Simulated scan of single mutants.
Amino acid sequence: MSRAVLSIGSNLGDRFAFLQSVVDGLSPYVIAVSPVYETAAWGVEDQPDFLNAVVIVSGDGIDEWGWLRRGQELENAAGRVREKRWGPRTLDVDVVSVDGVTSDHPELLLPHPGAFERATVLIPWLDVEPDAVLPGRGPVSALPVSPEGVRRRDDLVLSGWMES
């Protein structure tokens, strides 16, 4: 049984609906979903704010490549277009960590290389897994991350999965 941490984000169109499409599309595998957060874009800053969340999934016979493929399928279904690095997008599904696996393959870097410094990943992850550990970096709670500019959106609740 593999277990993965996915970071999801959207800043174009119906941002919340795109996040919900991930929970719906992975519903048989979802074991936890964080609250939704809103953050300003970084990288290319002249773009709309993002909605972000973390989804923890688990499934038999699904390895890190399987989680990557599923994430990309959901991105494609949401009309994701890759025009500019860190540019606006309908949906972004990043594989943050899978069972402590490390990978330096150019198509699948694990753990996700920017996760250790991104409040958009770490803050929601800690909401659903306070004892989370990022391989190669240690306990997520010990990583220096600023909550500045990260706004929890309690009015937006991702649904359609069952807590175990």
Rank of each mutant, 00 (worst) to 15 (best):
L158V: 04
R70M: 15
A41C: 04
L26M: 12
P35H: 11
D63T: 06
R152D: 05
A119H: 06
W42S: 00
W86A: 06
R15L: 10
P135T: 02
L134Y: 08
L68Q: 04
R85P: 11
G87K: 07
S103A: 10
P106I: 03
I62P: 10
F18H: 15
W161G: 10
D104L: 11
S164P: 14
V98L: 01
W125D: 06
L109V: 15
V145G: 12
D14C: 11
P124T: 02
A119S: 13
W86F: 14
V96W: 05
N76E: 13
L68R: 02
G138D: 10
V145M: 04
W67G: 03
V95S: 10
R80L: 00
L109I: 15
L122S: 09
G61K: 08
G87H: 03
R153T: 03
G66C: 02
G87Q: 10
R137L: 06
M162Y: 11
H105V: 10
L122G: 09
W65K: 00
A142R: 02
G71H: 09
G138C: 12
G71L: 04
V44Q: 02
G59Q: 13
G160N: 04
D24P: 03
E117I: 14
M162E: 14
S10Y: 11
R15D: 03
Y37C: 03
F18R: 14
Q47D: 00
A17Q: 09
S58A: 15
D14I: 06
E148L: 07
V133M: 08
R69P: 03
E107L: 13
L126W: 04
G25T: 13
E117D: 13
A119R: 08
L51Q: 01
G13C: 10
R85Y: 07
W42A: 01
L158Y: 06
I8D: 14
V101A: 15
R151Y: 12
S58V: 03
R70Y: 09
I56L: 04
L109S: 14
D155V: 09
S27G: 12
V54K: 03
V55M: 07
D92T: 02
P113Q: 11
G71I: 05
L51R: 04
